[in-house]
Amino acid sequence: MENNSEKYSVRSFLGQLKSGIIEQNPTLVQVLGMCPTLATTTSLTNAIGMGLATTVVLAFSNLFISLLRKFIPKQVRIAAFIVIISGFVTAVEMLMKAYFTDLYQSLGVFISLIVVNCIILARAEAFASNNKPLPSIVDGLSMGLGFTCALCLLGTVREILGAGTVAGISIFGESFQPAQMFIMPAGAFITLGCLIALVQKLRTVSAEKQKAKELAAEEAADASEGGNDQ
């Protein structure tokens, strides 16, 4: 099951990064880990905090699961993964409590709930448990950054519409009347729905372009073959 027998190159690093952030974005494309996505994006600051905390846990748990992949028996692997993950979550929780108390209080229970974030278990099961440590940690980082980007996007939109601010800084002045619905739960569902619809639209457009390109290339190849026959 070793996918990366050859040396790990810069190109594969960039490929993994692109796949995690854009092509296989865990939130907007794979629609995983919805609870923190919806709950912690009331402001940009919260979104960045949650995204980075998850990224750290994801990178370290991927690294350790990859290092231990030959020692964990197949039957109890899920339980083993959960123990490794919750260890790192506890560490992150204690660090945040010590150094970012405000953020820790505004995220609340959701820091502990990183343990049951499906993205982390999904990457552990699908990638880290049968790949070498270096690609695994890069996979964790890129998936985590993809998650962070999606959260930031959602957080920015909701904060602008719902409070008229970006990261706490007012951008419209005093007279702006924010639509508070957007920082309430209902706004979370609606904004995320619209964002995913936008992403689907962009993906179908780019897929159609790709197809048109391939068709054109095929036609050109046919034409040149025809030329050779004569």
Partner: peptide, 22 residues
Amino acid sequence: PKCFKGMPLALITAGLIAMAFL
């Protein structure tokens, strides 16, 4: 519309139900 099919439409519906629960 095609791009709203599936998950986006479901999420927006959930948002409307959430509004009712408000």
